[in-house]
Amino acid sequence: MARMSGTRVSIVVFATSFLLGLLFTHWIADSLTLWKPPATDERLWMSATYYSVIAKTPIGFLYLFAFVAIGGGLTILWCLREGEAGNLMFDGGSIFLYASALAVYVHTVLPNLGVNFLTLPESATEIPEPLKRSTLELASSHLVCSVALTGVLALQAGRWWAENNNDPDH
C-alpha cells in the first residue's frame, strides 16, 4: 500500500508544483504591482500588457492546465479515501487549500482576464481606474493561489515526514 500511496503523493506534488510554476511565471507582472510601491501608472500598464498576453493564451494550453489541475485534485481525494488519520489530516488540509486555490482561479482570475485584459485601451498615459483595480486584483489573486498551493506542498511534505518517521524500518 505504501508504494501506491507514494505514487499518489508524487502525482499531487507534480500537479501542485506545475501549477505553482505557472503562477510564478506571472511574478514579472505581479511584482510590479504588489511588491514595488508605489504602483505607478507605468508599472500598472506593463503588468496589464503582460496580463493581456496571458488572456490570449491558446485554448489547447488552457485544456492542459485544467487537466493537470483536475488530476491533482482528484488524486488528493483518492488519497483521502484510505481513511487513515494521517491522510485525513494532511490530505484534508491539502484538498481544502487546493480547492481554495482552484476556486480563486476559476471565480476571480479567469473572469478578470477574460473581461478586462483581452483588449486594452490605446492610450498609455494614464491607466483607467477600472483597469488599475483589475490589475491589482489579478496580482493579489495570483498571490492567494500561490500561497495556498505552497501550503499543499508543505502539508504533503509533512505527511511524508510523519509516515517515514513512524515507520519501524527507518
Rank of each mutant, 00 (worst) to 15 (best):
F61W: 10
V147Y: 10
S47K: 00
I95R: 04
I59Q: 10
A55D: 04
L155Y: 08
Y98H: 04
M1Y: 09
K56E: 03
L143E: 07
R43H: 06
L149K: 05
F24R: 05
T108S: 11
N166F: 05
W161N: 06
D167S: 12
T108V: 15
L118N: 04
L136H: 07
A15N: 02
V144Y: 03
M46S: 02
D41K: 07
S5L: 10
G83L: 12
W45I: 01
P37H: 13
C145I: 13
N112Y: 05
W45R: 01
A139S: 10
V144H: 01
A154P: 01
L22N: 05
T75I: 04
T49L: 02
A55I: 06
P128I: 11
A29V: 10
D169S: 15
L102P: 00
C145Y: 01
G151Q: 11
R159A: 03
A148R: 04
L153N: 12
L20Q: 02
S100Q: 05
T25Q: 13
S5P: 03
G6V: 07
L143W: 06
H170Q: 13
D91T: 03
Y63A: 13
W35L: 15
N165D: 10
L153D: 11
Y51P: 00
L44H: 00
L23V: 04
P121H: 06
A103M: 08
A101V: 01
A124T: 15
H26E: 15
L80Q: 07
W161V: 14
A29G: 09
P38H: 11
T150D: 08
A29D: 07
L22A: 04
Q156L: 12
A29I: 09
V152D: 08
W35Q: 10
P130N: 12
R159D: 02
P58S: 08
Y105P: 01
L120R: 10
F96T: 09
V9A: 06
G21T: 04
A157N: 11
A101H: 02
G151M: 12
L77S: 03
F90A: 04
W27F: 14
T49C: 00
A48V: 00
L97M: 13
T119K: 11
G73W: 02
W160F: 12
A15P: 00
A124D: 09
V68L: 06
F65Y: 14
W35V: 10
R8D: 11
E84R: 05
E126S: 14
S134G: 13
K36V: 13
T16F: 02
E42M: 07
L149F: 15
H107M: 14
G21D: 02
W45S: 02
